[in-house]
Protein backbone atom coordinates (compact mmCIF):
# COMPACT_ATOMS: atom_id res chain seq x y z
CA UNK A 1 0.00 0.00 0.00
CA UNK A 2 2.82 2.34 0.83
CA UNK A 3 4.75 1.24 -2.17
CA UNK A 4 1.77 2.32 -4.18
CA UNK A 5 1.53 5.76 -2.70
CA UNK A 6 5.28 6.28 -2.98
CA UNK A 7 5.57 5.25 -6.59
CA UNK A 8 2.47 7.24 -7.45
CA UNK A 9 3.97 10.44 -6.21
CA UNK A 10 7.33 9.59 -7.66
CA UNK A 11 5.98 9.11 -11.16
CA UNK A 12 4.32 12.50 -10.94
CA UNK A 13 7.71 13.96 -10.10
CA UNK A 14 9.15 12.24 -13.16
CA UNK A 15 6.48 13.65 -15.39
CA UNK A 16 7.47 17.17 -14.40
CA UNK A 17 10.95 16.57 -15.66
CA UNK A 18 9.62 15.72 -19.16
CA UNK A 19 12.35 14.27 -21.38
CA UNK A 20 13.64 11.86 -18.75
CA UNK A 21 10.18 10.33 -18.57
CA UNK A 22 10.91 7.40 -20.88
CA UNK A 23 14.17 6.55 -19.23
CA UNK A 24 12.45 6.78 -15.86
CA UNK A 25 9.69 4.44 -16.99
CA UNK A 26 12.31 1.83 -17.87
CA UNK A 27 13.25 1.61 -14.25
CA UNK A 28 9.66 1.26 -13.12
CA UNK A 29 8.52 -1.32 -15.70
CA UNK A 30 10.06 -4.41 -14.09
CA UNK A 31 8.20 -3.59 -10.91
CA UNK A 32 4.86 -2.94 -12.57
CA UNK A 33 3.67 -6.55 -13.01
CA UNK A 34 4.37 -7.23 -9.35
CA UNK A 35 2.63 -4.07 -8.30
CA UNK A 36 -0.38 -4.99 -10.40
CA UNK A 37 -0.56 -8.62 -9.33
CA UNK A 38 0.09 -8.25 -5.64
CA UNK A 39 -0.84 -4.63 -5.01
CA UNK A 40 -3.39 -3.02 -7.25
CA UNK A 41 -5.51 -5.97 -8.34
CA UNK A 42 -6.09 -7.31 -4.80
CA UNK A 43 -6.82 -3.76 -3.71
CA UNK A 44 -9.34 -3.31 -6.47
CA UNK A 45 -10.88 -6.67 -5.61
CA UNK A 46 -11.16 -5.64 -1.96
CA UNK A 47 -12.84 -2.40 -2.98
CA UNK A 48 -15.31 -4.28 -5.14
CA UNK A 49 -16.07 -6.76 -2.35
CA UNK A 50 -16.48 -3.96 0.15
CA UNK A 51 -19.25 -2.31 -1.81
CA UNK A 52 -21.12 -5.45 -2.88
CA UNK A 53 -22.87 -8.35 -1.16
CA UNK A 54 -22.06 -12.03 -1.52
CA UNK A 55 -24.07 -12.19 -4.74
CA UNK A 56 -22.20 -9.29 -6.26
CA UNK A 57 -24.99 -6.71 -5.92
CA UNK A 58 -24.07 -3.11 -5.18
CA UNK A 59 -24.88 -2.28 -1.55
CA UNK A 60 -23.15 1.08 -1.10
CA UNK A 61 -21.78 1.59 2.37
CA UNK A 62 -23.78 -1.19 3.95
CA UNK A 63 -20.72 -3.33 4.70
CA UNK A 64 -19.01 -0.36 6.30
CA UNK A 65 -21.88 0.54 8.59
CA UNK A 66 -22.40 -3.12 9.45
CA UNK A 67 -18.79 -3.64 10.52
CA UNK A 68 -18.69 -0.27 12.24
CA UNK A 69 -21.64 -1.30 14.39
CA UNK A 70 -20.09 -4.66 15.20
CA UNK A 71 -19.35 -4.87 18.91
CA UNK A 72 -15.73 -5.80 18.27
CA UNK A 73 -14.99 -2.98 15.84
CA UNK A 74 -14.38 -0.07 18.20
CA UNK A 75 -12.30 -2.01 20.75
CA UNK A 76 -10.10 -3.38 17.98
CA UNK A 77 -9.46 0.06 16.50
CA UNK A 78 -8.92 1.54 19.95
CA UNK A 79 -6.29 -1.10 20.69
CA UNK A 80 -4.59 -0.33 17.42
CA UNK A 81 -4.69 3.40 18.06
CA UNK A 82 -3.04 3.08 21.47
CA UNK A 83 -0.54 0.55 20.19
CA UNK A 84 0.47 2.57 17.13
CA UNK A 85 0.78 5.78 19.12
CA UNK A 86 2.95 4.22 21.79
CA UNK A 87 5.06 2.39 19.29
CA UNK A 88 5.61 5.28 16.87
CA UNK A 89 6.45 7.67 19.68
CA UNK A 90 8.93 5.19 21.09
CA UNK A 91 10.37 4.52 17.68
CA UNK A 92 10.81 8.21 16.87
CA UNK A 93 12.38 9.23 20.12
CA UNK A 94 14.65 6.28 20.71
CA UNK A 95 15.73 5.55 17.15
CA UNK A 96 16.58 9.15 16.37
CA UNK A 97 18.07 9.76 19.80
CA UNK A 98 20.20 6.64 19.81
CA UNK A 99 21.38 7.24 16.25
CA UNK A 100 22.44 10.79 17.02
CA UNK A 101 24.32 9.64 20.10
CA UNK A 102 25.89 6.80 18.17
CA UNK A 103 26.95 9.05 15.32
CA UNK A 104 28.70 11.52 17.57
CA UNK A 105 30.84 8.76 19.13
CA UNK A 106 34.16 7.58 17.76
CA UNK A 107 33.54 5.29 14.83
CA UNK A 108 35.16 2.12 16.21
CA UNK A 109 32.94 1.99 19.25
CA UNK A 110 29.87 2.94 17.27
CA UNK A 111 30.19 0.11 14.77
CA UNK A 112 30.06 -2.34 17.66
CA UNK A 113 27.02 -0.62 19.09
CA UNK A 114 25.41 -0.49 15.69
CA UNK A 115 25.75 -4.23 15.48
CA UNK A 116 24.37 -4.68 18.97
CA UNK A 117 21.39 -2.49 18.18
CA UNK A 118 20.72 -4.43 15.02
CA UNK A 119 20.89 -7.85 16.71
CA UNK A 120 17.30 -8.11 18.04
CA UNK A 121 16.05 -7.14 14.59
CA UNK A 122 17.52 -10.31 13.16
CA UNK A 123 14.76 -12.17 14.98
CA UNK A 124 11.68 -11.08 13.12
CA UNK A 125 7.99 -11.82 13.05
CA UNK A 126 6.58 -14.92 14.63
CA UNK A 127 9.86 -16.09 16.12
CA UNK A 128 10.32 -12.86 18.03
CA UNK A 129 6.84 -13.22 19.48
CA UNK A 130 7.69 -16.72 20.62
CA UNK A 131 10.78 -15.38 22.31
CA UNK A 132 8.75 -12.66 23.98
CA UNK A 133 6.22 -15.15 25.25
CA UNK A 134 9.03 -16.58 27.32
CA UNK A 135 10.28 -13.15 28.28
CA UNK A 136 6.83 -12.31 29.61
CA UNK A 137 6.42 -15.48 31.60
CA UNK A 138 7.70 -14.73 35.11
CA UNK A 139 8.39 -18.43 35.66
CA UNK A 140 11.12 -18.52 33.02
CA UNK A 141 11.89 -14.92 32.15
CA UNK A 142 15.35 -13.47 32.77
CA UNK A 143 13.59 -10.15 33.35
CA UNK A 144 11.42 -11.66 36.04
CA UNK A 145 12.10 -8.90 38.57
CA UNK A 146 11.02 -6.30 36.02
CA UNK A 147 7.77 -8.11 35.36
CA UNK A 148 7.19 -8.40 39.07
CA UNK A 149 7.87 -4.78 39.89
CA UNK A 150 6.84 -2.90 36.76
CA UNK A 151 3.80 -4.93 35.76
CA UNK A 152 3.08 -6.45 39.15
CA UNK A 153 2.92 -9.83 37.46
CA UNK A 154 3.97 -13.07 39.08
CA UNK A 155 2.10 -15.19 36.55
CA UNK A 156 2.08 -15.21 32.75
CA UNK A 157 -1.65 -14.47 32.73
CA UNK A 158 -0.97 -11.32 34.72
CA UNK A 159 1.80 -10.18 32.38
CA UNK A 160 -0.60 -10.29 29.47
CA UNK A 161 -3.50 -8.61 31.28
CA UNK A 162 -5.65 -6.72 28.73
CA UNK A 163 -4.47 -3.28 29.87
CA UNK A 164 -0.81 -4.21 29.29
CA UNK A 165 -1.23 -5.54 25.80
CA UNK A 166 -0.81 -2.41 23.62
CA UNK A 167 2.40 -1.61 25.49
CA UNK A 168 3.67 -5.15 25.31
CA UNK A 169 3.07 -5.37 21.57
CA UNK A 170 4.68 -1.96 21.12
CA UNK A 171 7.71 -3.20 23.03
CA UNK A 172 7.97 -6.34 20.90
CA UNK A 173 7.67 -4.33 17.70
CA UNK A 174 10.21 -1.80 18.95
CA UNK A 175 12.85 -4.36 19.78
CA UNK A 176 12.50 -6.19 16.52
CA UNK A 177 12.31 -3.09 14.34
CA UNK A 178 14.32 -0.35 16.01
CA UNK A 179 17.76 -1.84 15.32
CA UNK A 180 17.23 -1.90 11.58
CA UNK A 181 16.04 1.69 11.61
CA UNK A 182 19.04 2.78 13.67
CA UNK A 183 21.27 1.36 10.97
CA UNK A 184 19.26 3.17 8.29
CA UNK A 185 19.37 6.46 10.20
CA UNK A 186 23.06 6.03 10.79
CA UNK A 187 23.53 5.63 7.07
CA UNK A 188 21.49 8.79 6.54
CA UNK A 189 23.67 10.72 8.98
CA UNK A 190 26.75 9.54 7.12
CA UNK A 191 25.55 11.35 3.99
CA UNK A 192 25.89 14.69 5.75
CA UNK A 193 29.10 16.31 4.46
CA UNK A 194 31.74 16.54 7.18
CA UNK A 195 32.48 20.13 6.11
CA UNK A 196 29.07 21.18 7.35
CA UNK A 197 29.75 19.67 10.73
CA UNK A 198 33.19 21.21 10.89
CA UNK A 199 31.85 24.60 9.91
CA UNK A 200 29.29 24.38 12.66
CA UNK A 201 31.93 23.38 15.15
CA UNK A 202 34.12 26.34 14.14
CA UNK A 203 31.11 28.57 14.65
CA UNK A 204 31.07 27.32 18.22
CA UNK A 205 28.30 24.71 18.13
CA UNK A 206 28.60 21.97 20.71
CA UNK A 207 27.71 18.32 20.04
CA UNK A 208 24.13 18.81 21.22
CA UNK A 209 23.55 21.83 19.05
CA UNK A 210 25.07 20.02 16.08
CA UNK A 211 22.82 17.04 16.65
CA UNK A 212 19.62 18.98 17.09
CA UNK A 213 20.09 21.98 14.82
CA UNK A 214 22.18 20.48 12.02
CA UNK A 215 21.83 16.72 11.81
CA UNK A 216 18.21 16.34 12.80
CA UNK A 217 16.80 18.68 10.11
CA UNK A 218 18.97 16.99 7.49
CA UNK A 219 17.60 13.51 8.19
CA UNK A 220 14.02 14.69 8.50
CA UNK A 221 13.04 12.85 5.32
CA UNK A 222 14.35 9.56 6.58
CA UNK A 223 12.36 9.99 9.75
CA UNK A 224 9.25 10.66 7.68
CA UNK A 225 9.97 7.58 5.63
CA UNK A 226 10.28 5.49 8.80
CA UNK A 227 7.01 6.90 10.11
CA UNK A 228 5.06 6.10 6.96
CA UNK A 229 6.24 2.51 6.77
CA UNK A 230 5.83 1.94 10.49
CA UNK A 231 2.40 3.54 10.62
CA UNK A 232 1.00 1.09 8.12
CA UNK A 233 2.67 -1.91 9.75
CA UNK A 234 1.37 -0.71 13.08
CA UNK A 235 -2.24 -0.37 12.07
CA UNK A 236 -2.09 -3.76 10.37
CA UNK A 237 -0.82 -5.64 13.40
CA UNK A 238 -1.70 -9.31 13.22
CA UNK A 239 0.88 -11.92 14.15
CA UNK A 240 1.63 -10.76 17.68
CA UNK A 241 -1.93 -10.71 19.06
CA UNK A 242 -2.80 -13.86 17.13
CA UNK A 243 0.04 -15.79 18.70
CA UNK A 244 -0.63 -14.40 22.15
CA UNK A 245 -4.26 -15.41 21.68
CA UNK A 246 -3.21 -18.99 21.13
CA UNK A 247 -0.52 -18.99 23.79
CA UNK A 248 -2.89 -17.60 26.38
CA UNK A 249 -5.46 -20.28 25.59
CA UNK A 250 -7.90 -17.69 24.38
CA UNK A 251 -7.58 -15.16 27.20
CA UNK A 252 -6.66 -12.50 24.68
CA UNK A 253 -9.53 -12.14 22.20
CA UNK A 254 -8.88 -13.32 18.67
CA UNK A 255 -10.26 -10.02 17.43
CA UNK A 256 -7.85 -7.85 19.40
CA UNK A 257 -6.57 -5.94 16.38
CA UNK A 258 -8.58 -4.69 13.44
CA UNK A 259 -6.68 -6.90 11.05
CA UNK A 260 -7.56 -9.93 13.15
CA UNK A 261 -11.17 -8.83 13.14
CA UNK A 262 -11.12 -8.73 9.33
CA UNK A 263 -9.60 -12.21 9.33
CA UNK A 264 -12.22 -13.60 11.71
CA UNK A 265 -15.08 -11.96 9.85
CA UNK A 266 -13.87 -13.46 6.59
CA UNK A 267 -13.01 -16.92 7.72
CA UNK A 268 -15.05 -17.68 10.80
CA UNK A 269 -18.19 -15.88 9.74
CA UNK A 270 -17.70 -16.35 6.03
CA UNK A 271 -18.45 -12.70 5.32
CA UNK A 272 -15.78 -11.71 2.83
CA UNK A 273 -17.57 -8.50 1.97
CA UNK A 274 -17.57 -7.20 5.52
CA UNK A 275 -13.93 -8.27 5.90
CA UNK A 276 -13.10 -6.35 2.75
CA UNK A 277 -14.80 -3.30 4.24
CA UNK A 278 -12.54 -3.49 7.30
CA UNK A 279 -9.51 -3.90 5.04
CA UNK A 280 -10.55 -0.83 3.11
CA UNK A 281 -10.85 1.07 6.41
CA UNK A 282 -7.27 0.07 7.13
CA UNK A 283 -6.19 1.06 3.64
CA UNK A 284 -7.75 4.50 4.03
CA UNK A 285 -6.13 4.98 7.42
CA UNK A 286 -2.74 3.93 6.04
CA UNK A 287 -3.05 6.20 3.01
CA UNK A 288 -4.24 9.13 5.07
CA UNK A 289 -1.32 8.67 7.45
CA UNK A 290 1.12 8.49 4.55
CA UNK A 291 -0.31 11.56 2.84
CA UNK A 292 -0.20 13.52 6.07
CA UNK A 293 3.43 12.66 6.70
CA UNK A 294 4.43 13.23 3.06
CA UNK A 295 2.85 16.66 2.86
CA UNK A 296 4.01 17.74 6.29
CA UNK A 297 7.60 16.63 5.86
CA UNK A 298 8.12 17.46 2.19
CA UNK A 299 9.41 13.94 1.70
CA UNK A 300 9.40 14.11 -2.09
CA UNK A 301 10.27 17.72 -2.55
CA UNK A 302 13.59 17.84 -4.34
CA UNK A 303 14.25 21.57 -4.41
CA UNK A 304 15.94 22.48 -1.17
Amino acid sequence: MNAFSLSGTRSRATRVRGPRRVRGAMFVVPYLPLLLLFGLIPMGYALKLAFTDDKGNWVGFHNFTKTFNDYRFMPAFKHILVYTTVWLAGLMIFVVGLTLVLHSRASRVSSTYRFLFYMPGALAGASSVLLWLFMLDPAVSPGEFLLRHLLGADLFVKSIAPAHLPYIFAMIAFWTGAGGWIVVMYGALNTIPTELEEAARIDGAGPITIALRLKLPLIRKWIAYMLILSFATGTQLFVEPQLVNEASLGMVPDTWSSNQLAYQVAFRFGDFNAAAAISVDLLVIGLAGAILVVTRSGLFRRDE
Binding site: M1, A232, Q236, F238, L249, N259
Partner: peptide
Protein backbone atom coordinates in the same frame (compact mmCIF):
# COMPACT_ATOMS: atom_id res chain seq x y z
CA UNK B 1 7.10 -5.54 5.30
CA UNK B 2 3.39 -5.85 5.80
CA UNK B 3 3.34 -9.33 4.47
CA UNK B 4 5.27 -10.67 7.36
CA UNK B 5 2.45 -9.57 9.64
CA UNK B 6 0.02 -11.61 7.68
CA UNK B 7 1.96 -14.82 7.97
CA UNK B 8 -0.54 -17.42 9.03
CA UNK B 9 -0.19 -17.70 12.74
CA UNK B 10 1.33 -20.99 13.61
CA UNK B 11 0.01 -22.94 16.49
CA UNK B 12 2.47 -22.94 19.27
CA UNK B 13 1.44 -24.26 22.61
CA UNK B 14 1.07 -27.81 21.52
CA UNK B 15 1.22 -28.85 25.12
CA UNK B 16 -2.13 -27.29 25.77
CA UNK B 17 -3.67 -28.43 22.56
Amino acid sequence: MNQRRLLPAVALVALAL
